[in-house]
Design a binder for these strands. Structure first.
Length: 111
DNA sequence: CCTGTGACGTCCC
DNA sequence: TGGGACGCCACAG
């Protein structure tokens, strides 16, 4: 459709990533790579970049997206890792003493 | 137009 | 078993 190829399938890659993030049910978490794959196999970094570009109040549960280690990736600018962990705990997600989440238990989709 | 960077992931040692 | 290095794709300047 689009000769330019600026977007994939007519939708912005970001919109597709956000759509996948919205699909994450409350009390569950997903990884960047997982979302990237579901979004079309793009690089996991693009998911992180999309999250970074995600404006607050967008309605996207970005906090449910963590890295494959089950740990909240340290961001370059601004704080939020602490807030992110806090929000996940509010949703009913338990963190390990190491500050990690058990993807085997909270990972979505289920392994 | 080209370069740098980034909320990551996987391979190799 | 853990740590280090490379690769990935997209966006901004």
């Amino acid at each position: 459709m689009n000769s330019h190829g600026s977007d994939r399938c007519g939708n912005s890659l970001y919109a597709r990533i956000y759509a996948q993030v919205r699909r994450i049910p409350r009390g569950r978490v997903s990884t960047y790579g997982r979302i990237a794959r579901l979004a079309g196999g793009c690089g996991a970094r693009q998911v992180g970049y999309a999250m970074a570009a995600l404006p607050m109040g967008s309605g996207v549960p970005w906090q449910r997206v963590i890295n494959y280690k089950g740990e909240i990736s340290p961001r370059k600018h601004g704080d939020g890792a602490g807030s992110q962990r806090r929000c996940l705990e509010v949703e009913g997600i338990c963190f390990t003493p190491q500050g990690r989440v058990d993807l085997k238990r909270y990972g979505w989709p289920a392994y």
